[in-house]
Design a protein around this nucleic acid. Structure first.
Lengths: 109, 109
DNA sequence: TCAACATATACCGATGATCTGAGTATTACT
DNA sequence: AGTAATACTCAGATCATCGGTATATGTTGA
């Protein structure tokens, strides 16, 4: 799973959101590092819905504009948790090795 | 940056390695989750060398077989550290949101 | 006052980067 | 003869990115 997709799941983890809100939320939670494009978002939502990780959870009209909400399924929450654990492990492993590098001048082994 | 590329940098962080060793190392550091393919590896090495993150650091013949070594540049180490930090933050954010979800039944806001 | 622009919202298609799968080749050990 | 160790290539698939289209309302300056 790539970063934009991961961030979409993460953005949905604390409650249902509509597309436009997701775009803003992903920007916010990544501290501006990721600007989610509409094409990326809707393709990801389709894919994730197909995998049963996300589902549409209703529509609403606000100020004449339609809002279509999406939320995480339980399977989606599990996948997100597993993926987060994996990122944490990868990061930890990289840090461990970078430390070894610094300790030994530049390159052990 | 995707996971295989990240793991290649991580595998190089503690010292120069040759291609075949990298494939085994990436399998090991990801606890078997990632099986690096030769195509992925050599494409990644080319790309990373082009970006100045990795460089060839010599060749050696061992038991009649050539070993071509690669290692991380200082720029590569910096990029790896930055990327690791990013993964850590993304994972932390996801965990925070998953917690919020559990606290509130299934979906706040 | 009204045209112009910004903001909110949904969505599509072409392109491109990167990974995967499936190979070729060589030497040494069993 | 088969397997492990080693280097490498190429075609195809996946997914993200870029750059659109479309519509409605709110805001602003000539």
């Amino acid at each position: 799973m790539r970063e934009p997709t991961f961030l979409v799941l993460a953005a949905l983890a604390d409650g249902a959101k509509h597309g436009y809100a997701l775009i803003r939320e992903v920007g916010a939670i990544s501290a501006g590092r990721v600007t989610l494009r509409a094409g990326t978002l809707y393709a990801a939502l389709d894919r994730l819905a197909g995998e049963g990780l996300v589902r549409q959870s209703g529509e609403e009209v606000v100020g004449g504009r339609l809002r279509r909400y999406y939320d995480l399924t339980d399977a989606g929450a599990e996948v997100l948790a597993a993926q987060a654990a994996r990122l944490r492990e990868n990061a930890a492993e990289a840090d461990r090795r970078l430390l070894a590098r610094r300790r030994t001048g530049t390159a052990p082994a």
